[in-house]
Amino acid sequence: MITIDNLHKSFGRQPVLSGVTLSFDRPGIYAILGPNGSGKTTLIKSILGMAIPDKGQILFQGKDIRGQWHYRRQIDYLPQIARFPDNLRVSELLAMIEDIREEKPQAMGRLIELFGLQPYLDKRLGNLSGGTRQKVNLVQAFMYDSPVIILDEPTNGLDPVALIRLKGLLHEEKEKGKLLLATTHIMNFVEEMADEVVFLLEGHIHFKGSLDSLKRQYNETSLERAIARILQGEPGFSANGHIKQAVRLAVRR
């Protein structure tokens, strides 16, 4: 569905993505991981056309997205920070998005109920708490039936009940055969939800594959420790890793 080919992006002199090649072609939940500043958000924003790549291209369902905007009809997006116009009411915000997309939201009523937002519909967004705003954000992101959903830190500021609802929601969307991309720092969430993991480090893809293969490659039982190994720059134990190490040793000699 999404193919990224040799993507380069720098802000000023600071390279953020340097040669990312990646494709998401099967439906499922993909967790995009990496330390702060590793380029996760920039990667997502490039797919959405918010950041303009310096080099390389992104194909969405086979078509180059550069300068396009129609393809975004097929993507739902949950921004990292839930901040909306202070003086609009919740219902007006949702109506605004409906207005822009020119499409009736299929699941809005159900989602409002799911996150218990009925009492807030007539409240101004500026008066809501951070957690409630994040729930509004979730409704906004899931109310359409788009084939791709992109989530930037979806668990931000949610209470445990809302978190469980969110996980249920993600499962449902996955069952429908959608592609979900999520950045997060919460490893429990990844272990519970993700089918595949993409690990970004300093603008490069360090690992892409299933959770099991990541753990196997680093010979660890938990995801957290496997990731700690990547960050400490230790080579993996896969066949590939052994060859690399052998080559390195050979060169040194």
């Binding site: 905007w69 129609h70 921004p79 920070i81 901040r83 909306f84 998005i97 822009i100 997309r101």
Partner: peptide, 17 residues
């Protein structure tokens, strides 16, 4: 500056910049 984050949400919608 105040609507910076909301502008990002708008940018992800199917609409011209």
């Amino acid at each position: 500056y105040n609507s910076r984050e909301f502008t990002e949400l708008l940018l992800s919608q199917p609409i011209r910049r």
